[in-house]
């Protein structure tokens, strides 16, 4: 069955997006990405060291993967915009994950600043993927500002607690006309599958893979779970389709009986 996600003109087969921080060795990042044939890979610009081949994380990202630079460390829209512009120097083609965090205690994204940065960067031609605290109105504002997808958190970064924001994310999936990618908080493959069953277009995972004892195996687990969840979503059909598909009306049919 052909089921390809297309974002910003790029066909994406593997709906598991992978973050590259927190790994014990950069070489493992490469093993993980190659094993699961990762299509989309995020890299923090703050960690990119163009001066050193050994230290440069970009050397460990397969050329076939789509690089998504993230603005980790930005505390304001202005800083995120500057980081995005600097990212052009590392050869990215404009895919940028906006991450604006002005709260060092819980590491929650600042939606207001994220919207501002999205607006500016989308106008400059960046393909903007904003990381956000799930909120329907803000998700719509992000899409209006030019985001190509919206990335609500499942639970706070690094918490490995799964999709605690399920109800809010489901509403965003139902109402927002852009791919929804759950980013942050997923601790186990079953949680990634759950997101996909809900209708997420993709999920982004870093901590759970990077801190596993066997990172490659955990990445495979996530990759398979994402595929399984996607298949289940397609198999059940989405709610709107189900409503349209009810040809017979066992409960209200009497109204039409003569």
């Amino acid at each position: 069955m052909k089921d390809t996600l297309i974002i910003a003109g790029r066909a994406i087969k593997n709906r598991l997006f992978v973050g590259t921080g927190k790994f014990p060795r950069k070489s493992i990042v490469k093993d993980v990405l190659e094993t699961i044939k990762a299509d989309v890979v995020t890299v923090s610009l703050r960690r990119v060291d163009l001066d050193s081949q050994d230290e440069n994380i970009l050397e460990f990202v397969p050329k076939s993967s789509q690089l998504m630079v993230n603005t980790s460390g930005a505390r304001t829209a202005e800083e995120a915009i500057r980081i995005a512009r600097l990212s052009k120097a590392c050869g990215g083609d404009g895919w940028i994950k906006i991450e604006v965090i002005s709260d060092s205690k819980y590491l929650l994204p600042d939606n207001e600043e994220t919207i501002k940065a999205t607006e500016v960067l989308a106008k400059e031609g960046f393909k903007v993927f904003p990381y956000m605290t799930p909120d329907l109105y803000d998700a719509k504002r992000l899409v209006d500002a030019g985001a190509v997808a919206v990335m609500p958190l499942g639970s706070p970064i690094g918490s490995n607690r799964g999709i605690k924001t399920k109800e809010l994310v489901q509403i965003i999936i139902n109402e927002v006309k852009a791919p929804i990618i759950v980013d942050a908080g997923l601790g186990m493959p079953s949680e990634a599958a759950e997101c996909m069953e809900m209708g997420c277009a993709a999920v982004l995972v870093n901590t759970a893979i990077a801190t596993a004892k066997n990172q490659v195996l955990m990445a495979e687990g996530f990759s398979e779970a994402v595929k399984a969840g996607r298949k289940a979503f397609l198999a059940k059909g989405n709610q709107a389709e189900q409503i349209k598909a009810h040809a017979s009306s066992p409960l209200t049919g009497f109204l039409h009986e003569k």
Binding site: P24, R25, R47, D49, E55, E79, L86
Partner: peptide, 14 residues
């Protein structure tokens, strides 16, 4: 010890 040394974790923004 299975830890990644991080030499660069920030950059000047201006």
């Amino acid at each position: 010890k299975d830890y990644q040394p991080v030499l660069k974790d920030w950059m000047h923004l201006s």
